[in-house]
């Protein structure tokens, strides 16, 4: 079981992801934009994984990733960018993510990628 933070301004998307990830046995919190997500991560242990939208009000995905990269406490937290943008486009906007998932996606795709990323993180931890 992992702790996962879902950051998406569309409540229905965030809720659907939350439900799917909880059904898969993860502990999930949500935030409606980058600023809210950073506030939720402040003062608590960073999540094991962040699912991050790109286009959001208040603070968008690239701005949040930049803030995480600048914060030594959050720098190592793996981020999957979940967006309607293509991976090539995302790479022109930001860095610091471990994978991308293009919207719209199926539950099978998102759970598969989450497990894959968490598995790699665990493997790296074991090696380290």
């Amino acid at each position: 079981m992992a702790t996962i933070l879902v950051v998406d301004d569309e409540p229905l998307i965030a809720m659907a992801l939350e439900a799917a990830l909880e059904d898969a046995g993860h502990r999930v919190t949500t935030a409606a934009n980058g600023r809210q997500a950073l506030e939720k991560m402040a003062g608590t242990a960073p999540p094991d994984l962040v699912l991050l939208d790109m286009m959001m009000p208040v603070m968008n995905g690239p701005a949040m990733l930049a803030a995480m990269t600048a914060d030594p406490r959050l720098r190592a937290t793996p981020v999957i960018v979940v967006s309607s943008l293509t991976e090539a486009k995302i790479r022109t906007l930001t860095t610091g993510f471990v994978a991308t998932l293009q919207k719209p996606y199926t539950v099978h795709e998102v759970l598969g990628l989450v497990e894959q990323v968490l598995g790699k993180v665990a493997e790296a931890d074991n090696l380290g």
Binding site: D9, E10, P11, L12, A32, N33, M55, M56, P57, N60, S84
Partner: peptide
């Protein structure tokens, strides 16, 4: 062009 949701606010 940026798409954002106002539902949360």
């Amino acid at each position: 062009i940026s798409y954002v949701s106002g539902i949360g606010a």
